[in-house]
Design a binder for these strands. Sequence first.
DNA 1: TGAACTGATACTGTTCAGGT
DNA 2: ACCTGAACAGTATCAGTTCA
Length: 741
Amino acid sequence: MAGAVYEGVAGGGDLFQGQKFFISQRVPLRAELIDNVKRNGGFVVPLEKNADVLVADDAKPKLAPAGSVSWKYLKQSVEKGELEDLEAHRINSPSKTRLAGGPQKLTRTPFTHEDSMAISIWVAKAEKLGFAARGNEIYEQFAEKNPRHTAQSWRDHWIKQLSHQPRPEIDMSSTDWPVKIKGDRPRRVIPPATQSKNVGTTPSASGAGRSLVPPSPTLLAASYSLEDEAPLIEAPSKDVPFTEEDIEILEREHPDIIKIPMGDWVVAWEAFAKKYTRHTAGDWSRYYCEDFHPRKLREGKGKDAISVKPKPNQGPDSTSKTYTTPVRAPASSRSHTESGKQTHRRGLGEEGAIVSKSPESATSKDRSKISASADKSKFLANLRELSGAIGCEIEPSFSLYGRNFELYDLWSVVNKPEFGGFQKVEESDRWLQVALKLGINTYRDEMAHTALKQKYRDKLVDLDTHISAGKTRGKRRSFPTKSTEPVTPVTTISTQASEQTHAYSSARKDGETKGRASLTESTEPITPVTAIPRQTPEQAHILASGVNIPKTLRQATVPPQESTNKDAATRRIRQSLGHGELAFLQSISEFARDCLPDPVTFEPIVSKRKIRLFDVWTASLPLLARFDDIESREVWDDLATQLGFEVSMHPSASDELRQICEDFLMDFYEFFIQREQEKIREEEALRQQPEEQGQSEDEEVVEEEAVEEEVMEEEVMEEEVMEEVMEEEVMEEEVMEEEVM
DNA sequence: TGAACTGATACTGTTCAGGT
DNA sequence: ACCTGAACAGTATCAGTTCA
């Protein structure tokens, strides 16, 4: 058998190239096996500890070393001329700990900064998904992917060195999560903050009273909590198509799904996927967000009062001054025109002061008073009051990307001291941070920050106005009553214009619009695509990040726009800086793991100095876009200077930095661009459908022009209205003083 | 229903490689 | 030699499951 069977690899084959085998003495045909191994490039070592593969007799498992494989592995591999599946020949399941940690380590491997970062991110993700940070499971999974240390070692390291540090901000859109492999029982979750070191000995503290998954108020989380028992089925395979049955499931569960609050999204889908195992949590979530929910919204347009569609007209690319409309009526079957009429009517009779005030003036003026009412019940009371005042019910929640958010949450985040209210957030462009605070996955939903901004303008600016006006007027609730509201034609037109602008913005497509320059700050467009209409990505980056572009590049190197998509993708990279260093490190290490032969160093040494890769990334972004065109060394010298290197003292710094860019930042940049372009294409494809159902492009153009005129008109009018409002307030204060007297 | 069993978590203690 | 800390073994405890 042998001769003929392994002929193809005999006499110098490389089947076992470089592999070291320990072959147990009591293995059948041992001499032959040794011979075969040697003839096929392998080595036979005398000590177990030096071997890559331990070979033993599967007929005597008790005598076989832990982790060993049957001698049949060698025999069959040689017979076939290709390596058999090693696991299929594994004799005895190694002990639990060894399995978890992979091959036993006998040498000490120091923990690097990268290791610490990696495990921190992993644990943070795990915690978010409801795993016990101190449990074993997540470390076992992690060690499988990262065998540099054993699971136990990873765990020890995290607990001893890292558990006391603040958790990194994480990117849950990454596909690299701990997964519930052992779905047969729930994990105990111990809140890190409350955990003490020696709780294990007392039953009350060591687990009896611990909760399982974090209690979730949501229907979905409740319905599909991780405590649910579902038969453990193999992980669903990727790319399983969504069938009618799946859609039925989503239909059935949709009322619950839309109630998932922020922060519970991932956990809820994990639980959902556990119940409906045909797809992974990620696939369910993706399908829901990208397909099901948009379709649902299209179908239910005008019917579903709960859903507020993240549609183009009210989302990112609206150029409208929609904040001038106090609150859009809860979704109804009214068309835009009708809705405009209604608002018009409301504006006429009831809301002059509200609509005419600019958000900036309102929020900055009385922020302290606003924050004083930072209490949900008060907030809701104010909301009701405003609803009453304008005669229109304001929904206290809204839906974004298929998730339901409380208006209060958005409002309270924006008005937190660290954000300082609407105007401050606007000025410092911190909507991204607001989105993050709200638990929105800003990687997956890149436009979330602009959508939130729009929501705030639409729904909350007027509330701010209402609150501040209410306080200004004292405790007597004299605010917006019909009798006191000045009814001015200005406000009427203003409101109407705003509605029409809104309609316009819903109809226009992403891209250039005419007359944008005439718009004032308050009407600035908010989509990245439109926000920096005449900037190159590089310029945009410079403006937004404060990074100085190297001087050589600064001149005459601004390229013509290659494509809208590429620009948008570039802008997204710029936006990603806002996610912070850890998000970047996480992305790049995932990228490196998939695409590079070696892991990246988070703190490369440049000119004998340790610097942060994130800093290099931030500073080099403008260069990466034009990497191949850069010939001048001066550019790199500039970069080095930006990063704090004295070029004369650190002459090699420029070259080293250039090397870092060339080695992997360039690849990462390209990868990022490609990925974003893909996403943009998908988003556009999605967007196009509803637009096609809307008006024709010809109509759009006509309406665009009309609306632009009105917008400009509105600008002028608003200023007048502002003056009127200020006058009104002065008058009211006088009246109050008189009454007090 | 309760005991036995099983598996997971939480923690302690020991060994030893590697650095000073 | 001493110290640090990675690696690992062992134990206590708890919670879920099984079965009489």
